[in-house]
Amino acid sequence: MTRKLLLALPLLVFVLFVGAALWRLADPPSSTVASKLVGKPVPPFALKPALPTKPGFGAADLAGGQPRLVNLFASWCVPCIAEAPVLAELKARGVAIDGIAIRDTAPDITRFLSEQGDGYARIGADPNGQAQIALGASGVPESFIVDGRGIIRYHHIGAVMPQDVPEVMAEWEKVR
């Protein structure tokens, strides 16, 4: 009996494997990491203006009744260059955008915006990446849609590319 069981052991292990594989195939893992902060209020932060020409902002300013798209960017970030024209298109379609400049300097930001275009209503300076950490962002660029009451409704990791525009616009329409 033990020998029979032993001989059937590989088969039993395989059956277990097939069970797990079937379950996984029926319920494939989602490839997008759902941000823990979606549905929660913006965590507290307050940022000084990154440039003398534009105001900075803080978490409190995001609960001002109007939805905003908060975009984390940096002049040293290559994907941000690819993202800039898409942000310009979003702005043209009525999206209000605030920027957070991560670990950057005013001269570099000015140069970046003059070359790549400037769609930001406000830009906060985040020289140490504190707001980035508070928002649970892992890198640059990332974007958040915050509704008029200061609740995060959408989190996009990486550059917003042309193919992402319909999704971002759909999320924007929801909070308007």
Binding site: K4, L7, V18
Partner: peptide, 10 residues
């Protein structure tokens, strides 16, 4: 294949 072969083996 695997199930068949392992069953045959057992």
């Amino acid at each position: 294949y695997v199930g068949g072969a392992l069953a045959l083996f057992a």
